[in-house]
């Protein structure tokens, strides 16, 4: 297990490659789950979220969750698993990850620490796309609205706010009679 600044660069590069993260990504925490230290099987934490990869006999299993979607984490003792909750309405979206998958050789006494750390991070990292959307609704300036819309579309293309951003953009380009951009 390695924390930011002490992660061997070979392991960091291997993990970035396995998860197809942008080359410049910084891994803040890495649990190398291989016996030979290649770090290709791993659990990592970045500023974006938690990523997990495991390969068995050529089959690869990937799992990830972004901080902005994560509501909280619970531990299910009978199943010996962490339960990552990101939708209270739709339980199918939530995910189980076994204790050993998250952190190799994690003993039960440390589980409360893991829960505390993850839940604290999840509660402090807010949905930035949603904040931008609020700014968009508060703004009365057309050019500012256009800029904010672009920021949402470019930086958070998978967020729920993208639809409103596109709508606002079209509306504003129409008002400005900017037909090229409207198209």
């Amino acid at each position: 297990v390695y924390i930011s600044k002490n992660i061997p660069s070979k392991k960091e590069h291997a993990a970035i490659k396995v998860h197809e993260l942008p080359i410049k990504s910084e891994i803040l925490w890495l649990c190398d789950r291989t016996f030979w230290g290649s770090a290709e099987d791993n659990t990592i934490i970045t500023d974006v979220g938690i990523f997990y990869h495991e390969s068995t006999f050529g089959d690869s299993f990937y799992w990830s969750i972004t901080w902005e979607k994560l509501k909280r984490v619970e531990f299910i003792e009978g199943r010996d698993s962490f339960y990552f909750i990101y939708s209270e309405e739709d339980e199918d979206q939530n995910a189980l990850l076994s204790r050993d998958s998250f952190l190799l050789n994690l003993s039960l006494e440390f589980v409360p620490h893991v829960l505390s750390a993850l839940n604290s991070i999840a509660s402090q990292i807010v949905d930035k796309a949603e904040i931008l959307l609020d700014q968009l609704f508060d703004s009365t300036d057309i050019d500012e609205q256009i800029n904010i819309s672009h920021e949402i579309i470019n930086n958070y293309p998978d967020s729920d706010s993208v639809y409103m951003a596109h709508l606002t953009l079209c509306y504003n380009y129409r008002i400005k009679e900017d037909w090229n951009n409207l198209l």
């Binding site: 297990v1 910084e26 803040l28 925490w29 952190l103 994690l106 440390f110 505390s116 750390a117 991070i121």
Partner: peptide, 16 residues
């Protein structure tokens, strides 16, 4: 990034 590192460092026996 700072939030994450700060929280992980609170539990060096697990995350460090």
């Amino acid at each position: 990034k700072d939030i994450i590192i700060k929280e992980l460092r609170k539990y060096p026996q697990v995350f460090d």
